[in-house]
């Protein structure tokens, strides 16, 4: 898989990261070397082997359905750049 300049621009847009055009070519090179390194895994024959989901054999932990959290509005909105009447306030986004 090869990454070019336009792929970099696309990924940056999806990730909401501003990357000046001048840097895009260089980033494509870096991403390609990372991907190339990962692609060494392709040399292994994984035919018939289920993907590993955990290093140790364990089951997904579950909770009992009970209200044990929340009711901490001040903490939740403490870091918001803008808030009003208990809501987060963001620049208008309307379709």
């Amino acid at each position: 898989m090869a990454v070019d300049k336009s792929t970099v621009a696309h990924i940056a847009k999806l990730a909401c990261i501003r990357i000046p055009e001048a840097q895009q070519e260089a980033l494509a090179g870096e991403l390609n070397s990372i991907l190339g390194w990962v692609e060494q895994l392709g040399e292994l024959d994984t035919q018939g082997i289920a993907p590993m989901t955990s290093v140790v054999e364990m089951r997904l932990p579950k909770r009992v359905d009970a209200v044990t959290d929340g009711d901490c509005r001040d903490k939740v909105i403490a870091n918001a750049p803008e808030s009003a009447h208990g809501f987060f306030s963001v620049p208008k986004v309307v379709e």
Binding site: R63, D65, T68, D69, G70, C72, K75, V76, G86
Partner: peptide
């Protein structure tokens, strides 16, 4: 359900804004 899919915050309809939010949901 009483609580959310991945947190213990309440799910009741019509509560005051952001009062049924855990730090997981945020």
């Amino acid at each position: 359900a009483e609580s959310k899919l991945f947190s213990g915050a309440a799910t009741a309809f019509g509560a005051e804004p952001n009062t049924q939010v855990s730090l997981v949901d945020a």
